[in-house]
Nucleic acid binder design. Sequence first.
DNA 1: TAGATTGTTAATCGATTAACAATC
DNA 2: TAGATTGTTAATCGATTAACAATC
Lengths: 233, 233
Amino acid sequence: MNKTSKMLPKPVIQRLPKYLTHVHELTSSGIPWVSSHQLADQLGFTSSTVRQDLSHLSLKGVSKRGYHTGQLVAVIRSELGADTRHRLVIVGAGYLGCAMALHGGLAAHGFETFGLFDNDPEIIGTKVGDFSIRPVDALKHVVKKEHVEIGLIAVPPPAAQEVADRLVEAGIKGILNLAYCHVHAPKDVVLIDARFLASLQELAYAIRCREEAKTAWAQQPEPFSQEKQQHES
Amino acid sequence: MNKTSKMLPKPVIQRLPKYLTHVHELTSSGIPWVSSHQLADQLGFTSSTVRQDLSHLSLKGVSKRGYHTGQLVAVIRSELGADTRHRLVIVGAGYLGCAMALHGGLAAHGFETFGLFDNDPEIIGTKVGDFSIRPVDALKHVVKKEHVEIGLIAVPPPAAQEVADRLVEAGIKGILNLAYCHVHAPKDVVLIDARFLASLQELAYAIRCREEAKTAWAQQPEPFSQEKQQHES
DNA sequence: TAGATTGTTAATCGATTAACAATC
DNA sequence: TAGATTGTTAATCGATTAACAATC
């Protein structure tokens, strides 16, 4: 349906990149149609979820065939804004910030870097690929002049909040926080956390729970195991 | 309550690192008690959510005082397994993989790297910090020998699925996928996506929606704006 | 004591899944 | 035509928020 300026539910937005990359592969393989059941199997969703998700987009599936892969790629790209260019700055020129600056995928997906900033006098002026590292004091000037929308926080946690404040003050519209800490921004600035350390902790936690469940399962002599197996199958 | 091997709801697990880093700061500032309302204000949750979340942990709040910050840090660390060491390998020695290998935060939080792998003959053998880059063929041997639990996928999307298969075959227990694509793993292997490009797209999407909403709001002469403002305040 | 704060139950909200008529 | 598949409504599930008795 895709009514203008109606924000899609967050879980849907988070699934769109998965559909996009996967269906793009299908088109590359010359597969012209894909059904909700196939997508569900391939991506680990249910077919209901797939149909609900895609019903938000401006395309129609076809009975007995499914969705046209080429069209699907096009409308998801359009919905995600994958065809428009976004302007960003990176604050923090440590390993992570530099990796972001040099990572080809950013530019390839329309995210153009307009500056790499740091506060360490030792490295200011140093070249990182095409960028020369600039002082954080220059942030505001660059953001204004280049109409930068997005700021990446790639500094150590103790400095993250101050960097966020500087970005907000510079007039940034959205922040991606890569630092392992909570940062606060006023509610007219969008803030999304992408903290791989938190993801790693979540992963380690999930692994531990699996192990414990397995152990418990092995130790406990389940009286009704037959029934349970039926339920699981 | 913290009943053994009972997995906490995912949203709770994802909030725990936020509580942890924030309350850790409070302890460092010598603040001994914090209430659910204070935590809610500081982290952007509701006090109900805070109390619900913390009720899963093995600690008791105190009427009129709240939660003891030191104890809170301890039980969250324990629940997250932040005090145990985790063994990982990194596959892909591009900018991102190398940044992960060199990032001090990993080791500081108990994630120990046991190898950095790549398939490019040009860079195999090269030193990256203390690691020398090894061929992906050596993956299985290292994972078995060092009892590695976690694998990081830091290769370009076209190679990601094959790397995932190799990690699974090597007997890894969990995978953190940093590549911008969907990868599949058998259900006894935990897989978590940490794709900053997807996060950036989500951010850009949210920014666009805000803009559009603002424009719509400015253009449409809302007849009931008075009432609406009351609701918002 | 009075008032603030917890822990927990109940109500609300939103997302996922199931079901099925409409369609090709 | 018969059967597979969509789009959508209804049912289920789970998470968040509200409310309030118990507590210090």
